[in-house]
Design a protein around this nucleic acid. Structure first.
Lengths: 350, 350
DNA sequence: CTGAAAGCGCTTACAG
DNA sequence: CTGAAAGCGCTTACAG
């Protein structure tokens, strides 16, 4: 019924050791035997028994993770790592090892150092989250040269050799924000779109979210469309934000909603809360603690979750399935764009 | 490092066969040996290697599923079964077998017959979705007598012996619907709460959803609160629904929103669409095809997903983890209450 | 009631 | 370049 290595060996008239060598592409087999065995493997549709394989093999499957570390001010990168580790412990029977190469998301050199270190450790697979686009692309090139398969998460830089991408579609999430805004404002008045980002922090995402948000209204014909005012704020300190947003409220009348394109929405919430503006619809990103606080006191209406934990979890599962179980992955594993309000918050917190 | 059966055997001065017998509670061991081995197992914190165990054992792990079958008119029960089967194929290396005992959700006798049949097959574990409360409770009693562990899904009847419950909190999902309604109507005008159910179909869920919806407004102090008009419709044919809802629109003025407490929301959507009432906010349940159609043409504003596929998937994973991997499950595995609109629909479709 | 031995399907030195 | 044998940790008849 089930085809074993032994069956292949009998058919090919060689020993099981040789079959094993062919299956794992070791170079110690004569070309003739190799091709004969390969065709028998295909013909008999051999599928390895991963239980037996894991049990017999000493060497663990080593996965290297190259993502930013989190800081007290920016917890975002904690959850992906947790997701990866949770997936790892679910698979612990299969002898998987995760090694973390964490870098400072504002320090390009740090990234380069870590990526060299990673390559020198010769892992079996790589999970990486691109922050520095150009440098990550080069890093992926290097992985490919060393024949190390890699998966890209959170931001899709579409390297031709990547096993898969795991993350959200930022443009689509902008459209979701717009739909919520439409429900809440009915297309009346003005809407501010605020992007708070020091450096290039999450820059791709921000641009695409803004784009998706705008496109939503452009596609809407016939209905009322609000006036949309976009502003980038290059600092994320409260005083700076307070001044900027405060200024906008003086400049523009009839503001009905604010869409903040990343996790800094709590700073805007703080402003609205302090100035007691209760009828502004506020939508932003990410279930980080300060945001949750303002969600619970009704200052933030909705948060869009990037599901960082799930991204990490799925990244590891996907690469494991692809490499160990031979299940070819979807090239783009899109993480759902969850809409979170006070009422459904509890079931999303890991 | 890792404790094996052999280590236990050496320590206890018996053979590995005996250890195996103790671990699996087979009755062919003398009481003295048994208790000695048990205490050594505990002391050395033995954890079985499930790879080796699955590899060596012939017998598959047999899981019986007792849920309603789906019909052309009601596809709801298709997805849980798919979720179970998908989980099963993900675990197929571990030799799991799923056997389906599907019953007619409107036929109590059919349920009883299937449950007898199931018990006679002596499965290793049971996944069941309660429709007939009293009868399911008795069925679970019977499972307990036969020492078959069971998990309850979709509706929690809180049997004291259940391994876990996997499903949504219907009351909380009513609150989510209310929050959406508040965003869309700002608490102005009147809101209809419509429950369309022939027989007792999903009755517990409907009551709890209504309850959660009402409680939301009760907790809201200070804000505008709409007038809420609840109505049960005992038939789900379009003509009947059209007459009833049409009548309500004649009876009440200034209706701003309609909350349909189950998947029949497409019938109300059809009415709104046919009568060209565009400014009524409409919220309902479940990503079934007719609902998706009206979501895409902007008649339904939001759907709440019960994530039936995920319920099935998690039910199987939970019982497998609990019984084969000794991971004790959360007693209530609450499935997130996803809010679906046209814009985020795509990433939720399996 | 208990032990010795073979086996699950694959991998890994080792010998040639 | 290839094979025979031992081993991964657990389970299962079989013999006593």
């Amino acid at each position: 019924m089930k085809i074993r290595i032994k069956d292949i060996a009998d058919r090919a008239g060689v020993s099981t050791g040789t079959i094993d060598r062919v299956i794992h592409g070791r170079e110690e087999v004569s070309p003739g035997t190799r091709s004969r065995v390969l065709s028998i493997l295909k013909e008999m549709r051999y599928e390895p028994d991963i239980l037996a394989s894991s049990l017999a093999s000493r060497r663990p499957f080593r996965i290297a993770v190259l993502i930013p570390f989190h800081t007290p001010e920016n917890w975002f990168w904690k959850d992906p790592m947790n997701g990866i580790n949770n997936a790892c412990s679910e698979l612990n029977h299969f002898r998987i090892e995760v090694k973390e190469f964490l870098y400072d998301q504002f320090d390009k050199n740090g990234f380069l150092e870590k990526s060299v270190e990673l390559l020198e450790s010769f892992p079996d697979a790589v999970i990486a989250a691109p922050v520095f686009n150009h440098e990550t692309r080069e890093f992926f090139d290097r992985c490919h040269e060393q024949s190390i398969p890699f998966i890209s998460m959170n931001d899709n830089i579409r390297h031709p050799e990547q096993v898969a991408y795991v993350g959200q579609d930022p443009r689509q999430s902008g459209a979701v924000a717009a739909q919520l805004m439409k429900t809440g404002t009915n297309g009346q008045g003005k809407i501010l779109v605020i992007s708070i980002a020091r450096d290039m922090d999450n820059y791709n995402h921000i641009l695409n979210r803004e784009k998706g948000f705008r496109e939503y209204w452009e596609k809407l014909n016939g209905s009322a469309v609000p006036e949309i005012i976009t502003r980038a704020i290059p600092k994320d300190t409260y005083n700076y934000i307070k001044r900027t947003i405060g200024g906008m409220f003086e400049e523009f009348s009839d503001i009905r909603g604010i869409f903040v394109t990343n996790s800094r929405v709590y700073q805007v919430a703080r402003f609205l809360h302090n100035t007691e503006q209760k009828n502004i619809m506020l939508v932003g990103y990410d279930l980080i603690n300060p945001n949750i606080k303002y969600l619970n006191n009704d200052t933030i209406d909705y948060l869009i979750s990037q599901k960082p934990h799930e991204q990490g979890y799925k990244a590891l599962m996907t690469i494991f399935n692809a490499l160990r179980l031979n299940k070819k992955p979807t090239p783009e594993l899109l993480i759902p764009i969850d809409i979170i309000c006070k009422e459904n918050l509890c079931c999303y917190q890991v």
